[in-house]
């Protein structure tokens, strides 16, 4: 087994830009250990995406035409297995997304492959492939290897590997999709609720509260503080799931990305990967958390280890 196979991801006719990050990770591995890089496009009409994945470093683009526009785990599982059987790669790379949460591990179990998820660094130590991921709410990192595995499946964390912009000159080929009856069926998409009072994606200054706020009755004082500072109030998921603030205020992977934000104050938020996905790009992050080891401090520019209620109370004297 040799070579790297990247599985492209798309939804509703749009290539997931994380695919180009995944290609970048493959290209970096190829630099240290020369080997072919192939990108498989599994789609009803793979031609749509060929130009977009033809990035520098890609040797082959494999089109696999499947009879579905939407992600169906049975179809994708069998198709990736068929492409792996056809090309025999040593490494299969996916973006770590909701779609791949739904099937990458199954591909590995069925094929007898090694597997690691949410990987943010990958390298060779001698001949061994070593993947790094985090545990314990990002407080510890772990290095994993895959002894005895001919093929290893990795899903890669987003916004870590810098996407390749430079166009490439890959050969284009095709593999036949296996015939599979999907046991899931798409009924439709439900668009995010846009009826919120503010669009946090537009906010320049944000103050977000997390589970540390404790209970619904405590929200009001942070709303007042945010107003007094001229900041927009946001939140982490548990606050929205509990109905303490509307879902439209939720920052993160399944909420919103605060695209325009310049200063983000995170109070009582631990800094899960899913929360950080929506705000880690903000130039000035100020974290207030009573746990000095909370991972939010790893991306903050300023940190206060302390009680969010006390700090909030004192801050009111300054606005």
């Amino acid at each position: 087994m040799s070579g790297i196979l990247v599985i492209a991801e798309h939804r509703r006719g749009v290539l997931n830009p994380a695919t180009l990050e995944t290609i970048a990770a493959a290209a970096a591995l190829k630099q240290v250990k020369p080997q072919p890089v192939a990108v498989a496009i599994i789609a009803r009409n793979p031609d749509e995406f060929v130009g977009q994945v033809n990035a520098a470093g890609v040797d082959e683009i494999i089109k696999v035409a499947v009879p579905t526009d939407t992600f169906q785990s049975d179809v994708y599982e069998a198709t990736v297995a068929a492409v792996v059987a056809a090309r025999g790669p040593a490494v299969v790379l996916f973006a770590h997304t909701v779609d791949t949460w739904g099937y990458a591990a199954a591909v590995a179990v069925r094929g007898g492959f090694g597997c690691a998820t949410d990987v943010f660094a990958v390298r060779y130590e001698g001949d061994a492939l070593v993947a790094t991921r985090a545990g314990y709410k990002e407080k510890l990192h772990m290095d994993l290897d895959f002894p005895g595995r001919q093929t290893v499946v990795l899903t890669l964390r987003g916004n870590v590997f810098k996407p390749i912009e430079e166009p490439g000159s890959a050969a284009v080929s095709a593999v036949d999709a296996p015939a599979v009856a999907a046991r899931t069926a798409h009924l439709g998409y439900i668009e995010p609720d846009q009826t919120g009072d503010v669009d946090i994606a537009q906010a320049e200054y944000m103050l977000s509260v997390g589970r540390g706020v404790g209970e619904e009755d405590n929200i009001e004082q942070f709303k007042e503080l945010a107003d007094a500072l001229g900041f927009t109030l946001g939140c982490s998921r548990p606050v929205a799931d509990n109905g303490w603030l509307p879902k439209s205020r939720q920052v993160g992977q399944s909420g919103k990305t605060v695209v325009s934000c310049k200063i983000y104050v995170a109070m009582g938020i631990s800094g899960s990967v899913q929360h950080m996905a929506g705000m880690k790009h903000v130039p000035t992050i100020i974290a207030i958390n009573k746990d000095a080891e909370a991972s939010i401090f790893s991306i903050a520019r300023y940190g206060v280890v302390g009680d969010m209620f006390e700090i909030a109370k004192e801050l009111r004297n300054h606005c």
Binding site: A108, A116, H141, D143, D145, S298, Y302, V304, D307
Partner: peptide
């Protein structure tokens, strides 16, 4: 599906910690 080689504390970011009383 994998073997654990080691766990380690990640290098911390550059957060400047603000010390002192809450005030």
């Amino acid at each position: 599906s994998f073997r654990l080689r080691r766990m380690f504390k990640p290098a911390r970011g550059q957060a400047e910690l603000i010390e002192g009383t809450a005030a």
